[in-house]
Design a protein around this nucleic acid. Structure first.
Length: 550
RNA sequence: GCGUGAGUAGCUCAGCAGGAUAGAGCGUCCCUCUCCUAAAGGGAAGGUCGCGGGUUCGAAUCCCGCCUCGCGCACCA
């Protein structure tokens, strides 16, 4: 029995009690779903709910009275062994061992599907992340979004959503011009321009362009040649890094394509009458203040050229035209001022601003010897995705970036990561998975199989604990999707790994020496395999491998 | 100044969609491998949950004020 199933049963009890007149509460005070939680202390049962405390006020009855009448109904639930009223009115629920143990079997039978559901079925989501300018390699900040974004995509998919991972490729405008000038300067053997890029990769790319096009410096417009070929090389390099990192985008959208055929201009003409744009001082403005912005933003400059935001509007329209119900943008904290603009862009299109959802993630800092190091693309002191992967490997890199809340700044100390790579929690979880595999191999060799299942045999304290945390997995994934917080999955895997290690220590699957194989051994194998399945499913949601041996 | 995120154990961070005695990893100190992987487990020590008010049966969690730190506040992209 999963907590969701129990929760649903309790909700039914509550509504039945209200319908029977035992409970006089206004309909709006009755929760649609009664939440159960895992008590911190085992003395408080397998699951507990504080619903009686919450309803005391609206019902005008002491909480323990409500608890009393609910407990008699709760005890009728199939699989509930006992209900206790504790403290001010908590309902502590004890499941019978068999009902709890059944979960092991159902997890194994569900296989990869355990933890998935159809809650988001029919929702077409465009998830845009990374979207780093193609003027250099992906640095640590982008790497964080690659890990978190790809994981979020996997979590959405597990909830049945139709997800497109998208990378917005800014190949239009100033930054790219600087990039092209920097390449040209490098090829000529000149120092990098004042406001250009000076990293080593510039030299490499410039060299690669020259190698492929030996006559390029005598071309009619060499800077334009360097722009075209350089962006292509940079783009290929970024895609390759991402691929190595296990992140493959479904769409790489080129900003330039929005401008090429004059579509942006045409669109802006139409929007002038939308009511969200107005003319002032010779420029066309978007009323982004209506969406929480500090000030309205210029869309068409007084010189007639489109401002950057014009591309955003056209891009949003493009996404909607492709049929997306929800457009999610993952941005770094240094771009959080864009939220209102993007929402206003949707409104300008006459669309619902809720179609746009912006997730803001805090910065990643590089730390050396305990002090922060400023990363600068120009100075060439950036740590790239490739650097990180080279030092710690893809699994550790992805896991350690995805296990933190995006609201927290994180510090990466390459020295610490190198020196103590075994301390990364990813190994704790992966080791637990490898251990389940080892136990499975030994069981098979000893002749223990899954030919029998006696749910009541899983009665050890570590077994009920393990079953409980396995049962929480689907709810954790659903919450991770609802709150767009992949780190919840990682944290829960650490909890499961801990529960498994403790169980392993206390309960053997394969009998010792010449002891006979019993149904207890066979049943435990189910639990072992169920744990393996959940760990593998969870690691899969994070894009981290689940090794069979370590 | 305005907006926004953070402040929880020595360190790195969960918990914040109100619940019972505030957690994990690492670090420190004790234990546990003749048989399933010790990359593990058990125990100890370690906390004014930034500060001050408020809301209520109950606040790390919600509200208000303040302090400190990060990020952002262009007719740039």
């Amino acid at each position: 029995m999963t907590p969701e199933e129990l929760s649903a049963a309790i909700t039914t009890c509550l509504h039945d009690a209200a319908a029977a007149g035992e409970l006089n509460v206004p309909a709006e005070a009755l929760p649609k779903e009664v939440r159960v939680e895992r008590p911190k202390s085992r003395e408080h049962g397998d699951w507990a709910t504080s619903i009686a405390l919450q309803l005391a006020k609206p019902a005008g009855v002491p909480p323990r009275t409500i608890a009393q009448l609910l407990s008699t109904r709760l005890e009728q639930i199939d699989g509930v062994a006992k209900v206790e009223i504790a403290g001010p009115g908590f309902l502590n629920i004890i499941l019978d061992a068999a009902a709890a143990g059944e979960l092991a079997k159902s997890i194994v039978e569900s296989g990869e599907a355990f933890g998935t559901n159809a809650a988001m079925a029919g929702t077409k989501i465009n998830l845009e992340f990374v979207s780093a300018n193609p003027t250099g390699p992906i640095h640590l900040g982008g790497t964080r979004w690659a890990a978190v974004g790809d994981s979020l995509a996997r979590i959405f998919l597990a909830q049945g959503a139709d997800v497109t991972r998208e990378y917005y490729f800014n190949d239009h405008g100033n930054q790219i011009d600087k990039f092209a000038r920097s390449l040209l300067a490098s090829a000529k053997g000149e120092p990098a321009p004042e406001d250009g890029y000076g990293g080593e990769y510039i030299v490499d790319i410039a060299q690669a362009v020259v190698n492929a096009h030996p006559d390029i410096l005598s071309a009619e417009d060499p800077q334009e040649e360097f722009r075209a070929h350089g962006v292509e090389l940079m783009f290929a390099s970024i895609r390759e890094s991402l691929h190595e990192f296990g992140v493959d985008f479904d769409v790489y959208f080129h900003e330039n394509s929005l401008f090429e055929d004059g579509a942006v201009e045409k669109l802006l003409e139409q929007l002038k009458g939308s009511g969200h744009m107005y003319l002032k001082d010779g420029a066309w403005w978007l009323n982004s203040t209506d969406f929480g912005d500090d000030k309205d933003r210029v869309v068409i400059k007084s010189d007639g050229n489109a401002a950057y935001i014009a591309g955003d509007i056209a891009y949003f329209k493009n996404k909607r035209d492709r049929g997306f119900d929800l457009c999610i943008y993952m941005l770094g904290a240094d771009h959080h001022g864009y939220v209102a603009r993007l929402k206003a862009a949707a409104a300008a299109m006459g669309d619902d601003a809720d179609r746009v959802e912006v997730l803001i993630g805090q910065m990643v800092n590089l730390v050396k010897d305990g002090t922060p190091v400023r990363m600068s693309k120009r100075a060439g002191t950036v740590v790239t995705m490739e650097d990180l992967v080279e030092v710690v490997g893809t699994d550790a890199a992805r896991y350690s970036l995805a296990r933190f809340s995006s609201d927290s700044n994180i510090d990466i100390d390459l020295d610490v990561l190198t020196k103590r790579s075994n301390e990364n929690p990813v190994f704790y979880v992966q080791y637990a998975h490898a251990r389940t595999c080892a136990v499975g191999r030994n069981a098979e060799a000893a002749g223990v199989d899954r030919s029998a299942f006696d749910a009541g045999a899983l009665s050890h304290a570590t077994e009920s604990e393990l079953l409980a945390v396995l049962g929480q997995f689907p709810g954790v994934v659903a919450q991770a999707a609802a709150y767009r917080e992949p780190h919840r999955v990682a944290r829960h895997l650490e909890v499961i790994a801990g529960a498994y290690h403790r169980w392993y220590d206390a309960c053997r699957v394969t009998p010792m020496g010449d002891e006979a194989i019993t149904d207890v051994n066979r049943t435990r194998l189910w639990l072992n395999d169920a744990t393996r399945q959940v760990l593998a499913n969870g690691l899969g949601l994070l894009g981290v491998s689940a090794p069979e041996r370590m």
